[in-house]
């Protein structure tokens, strides 16, 4: 049923993968005359929630397409079942993988950090050793850890890890963990930027298309009546085209980032746009400046 195709990890240390797959959505009857909104709401409802069929927590999605013209209503169930194809960014940590996070709580035997500013990872001092790395951790510090236990199925995912490395910032003063957003952006930049540009273009193109389609759809829906087909009734969702393009719903997030970069012109973000980050054996990041010399981040 599910066609899954890995599109590769987004960047190292965040345990996220892009997955292209077919997903079944169940829409409530009040979406009958606004299928697009229904699909959008149902897709957004998956964000930051564990999805069993994707084996991970969905971070974002894009390129949502309705696969079939019809939605089905089976038996006495009230909802419409729709098949949707989309790309999902799935947070899928596994035992042994490395995660990068920011320390947000330090206590005697435990260091807790946030990955993606959202997922809590706890790094306890399980052995009770005296020379534990975690004793040196400071609030707001960047940290790399290796996952030892994962349970994503709860309402709040549970991840336990052991500390691999504490990253030192250059000046020695650590950023407060409220500011780490910029920090993370720098790392994701080389991979994420080209995609985002594409997205924006796509969006504007799609919107025009949709406006036309919307009109058509609403007219169609108003006239269509439910038909009976053997055991299952079928509800016409749209009749014109086989595929409806649904706009990328993560607009809020994009807006937020946009505003962020606009507000903070001095943030390291524009710089790293052009330059590719490299990493040496020690794990330090650097990029080559115009003269070809390495500059460490």
């Amino acid at each position: 049923m599910e066609i899954e195709e890995h599109m590769g990890a987004t960047s190292e240390g965040d345990a996220c993968v892009w997955v292209h797959c077919v997903k079944e959505l169940y829409l409530q009857p009040h979406y009958f005359n606004q299928v697009q909104k229904g699909v959008g709401d149902a897709m957004n409802a998956t964000i930051n929630k564990y999805q069993g069929d994707l084996a991970g927590v969905v971070r974002q999605h894009k390129n949502v397409k309705l696969l079939s013209v019809d939605g089905t209503i089976t038996d006495e169930e009230s909802y419409i079942k729709l098949q949707v194809e989309a790309d999902f960014e799935v947070f899928r940590p596994f035992v042994g993988c490395k995660l990068k996070g920011v320390v947000n709580k330090v206590s005697a035997n435990n260091v807790s950090c946030l990955v993606h500013e959202l997922f809590n990872v706890s790094c306890p001092n399980t052995m009770g050793s005296d020379d534990w790395v975690g004793y040196n951790a400071v609030l707001g510090q960047e940290i790399t850890c290796q996952v030892t236990k994962v349970d994503l199925s709860g309402r709040i995912p549970y991840i336990r890890a052991s500390i691999v490395k504490l990253h030192q910032t250059e000046n020695g003063n650590h950023k407060h963990f409220n500011d780490e957003e910029e920090e993370e952006v720098v790392e994701e930049e080389p991979v994420e930027t080209p995609k985002k540009k594409k997205k924006k273009k796509d969006k504007s193109g799609e919107r025009v298309k949709e406006k036309k389609k919307k009109k058509h759809d609403s007219e169609e829906e108003a006239s269509s009546t439910p038909k009976k087909k053997s055991k299952s009734r079928r509800e016409d969702v749209s009749s014109e085209s086989e595929v409806i393009e649904i706009p990328e719903i993560d607009i809020l997030k994009a807006l937020k980032r946009k505003r962020k970069s606009g507000d903070l012109p001095d943030s390291p973000r524009p710089k790293s746009k052009k330059r590719k980050l490299h990493m040496n054996e020690a794990g330090d990041k650097f990029y080559y400046d115009d003269d070809g010399g390495p500059i460490f981040v």
Binding site: S112, N120, S122, R155, I156, P157
Partner: peptide
Amino acid sequence: LLELVATHTYFTS
């Protein structure tokens, strides 16, 4: 309480 929820997130609820 804070220590508990930071270490074992499943006790948050």
